[in-house]
């Protein structure tokens, strides 16, 4: 059985104050797929992501990762399978040096020190941050923090990567680097983002959320050309799907 699939069925969630953040969310993700989850602020994207690795356990409906249901009892397996990159790298990098931060997860997995060292080196090399190894995280630039945060998750060797706004707050060059990096991964990837151009370049499939529901799920190209759908979900066409503003080509 592949560990790389996700199956969400009838997932619902209400916050203690009564706000319904998710309402009957269902979708399937196959091995190696890259999927964008888009939607306006408060559409339920982050709440959905938190269900994918058991930070929240389903109270309504179910989440299955590689055939294992997400329950309190399976959290260890689930978290080993699903790696999550948070929106703010400052929340994710809490150890005194980059190397220790990347080694935090593998050490918690109970790996021997030599293996931890190897994983740290591999993960940092993979994101092109080997030279940052001994630096304290708070002295890194925004782009550097982001790739190191990705390395901390890669070092756990997850089958599935879940990312919340991987391009937010990055300058164009850093964004381009992160995008290239994400494209190069063979993992199953779920990316929640407002950066629709990133979604268009990275993901062949897009899920649109609106007020806790899935309102569209299909090929990225088709979703981003549906102006009515985008408008009703509080979104607009990404630049790549608009006619050229200079010559009008593609209109």
């Amino acid at each position: 059985m592949s560990h790389h699939t996700i199956s969400v069925a009838g997932l619902g969630f209400a916050y203690p104050d009564g706000t319904r953040a998710l309402d009957g969310v269902s979708f399937e993700v196959g091995h190696g797929e890259a999927i964008a989850v888009v939607g306006a602020n408060g559409a339920g994207k982050s709440t959905l992501l938190m269900h994918l690795n058991g930070l929240l356990t389903p109270s309504e409906g179910s989440v299955d990762i590689g055939g294992t249901p997400v329950t309190k009892g399976t959290l260890d397996v689930i978290r080993r399978t699903v790696g999550m990159v948070f929106q703010d790298p400052d929340d994710q990098l809490f150890m005194p040096t980059v190397a220790e931060d990347v080694g935090f997860g593998p050490l918690n997995l109970g790996l021997p020190p030599e293996d931890v060292g190897r994983r740290v080196d591999e993960a940092l090399a993979r994101v092109g941050a080997a030279h940052l190894k001994e630096r304290p995280p708070y002295h890194l630039s925004g782009g550097e923090k982001r790739v190191v945060a990705i390395a901390t998750v890669l070092a756990m060797e997850p089958a599935i990567l879940v990312m919340d706004e991987p391009s937010s707050g990055l300058d164009p060059r850093a964004r381009r680097r992160v995008l290239g990096l994400l494209r190069s991964f063979a993992h199953t990837r779920i990316v929640a983002t407002h950066d629709l151009d990133l979604a268009a370049e990275l993901c062949e499939r897009t899920i649109v959320m609106d007020r806790g529901r899935v309102v569209a799920d299909g090929p990225t190209g088709a979703v981003f050309r549906d102006d009515d759908l985008l408008a009703s979900a509080g979104l607009e066409r990404p630049a790549a799907f608009r006619p050229c503003p200079v010559c009008g080509a593609g209109a």
Binding site: R79, F86, G103, F104, P113
Partner: peptide, 20 residues
């Protein structure tokens, strides 16, 4: 948020430091 990020990476109440 920090606690959630730590839990995601297998935090069990103890910070292990690899430095020898």
């Amino acid at each position: 948020r920090l606690y959630l990020a730590m839990k995601c990476r297998g935090f069990d109440g103890r910070v292990r430091i690899a430095r020898r």
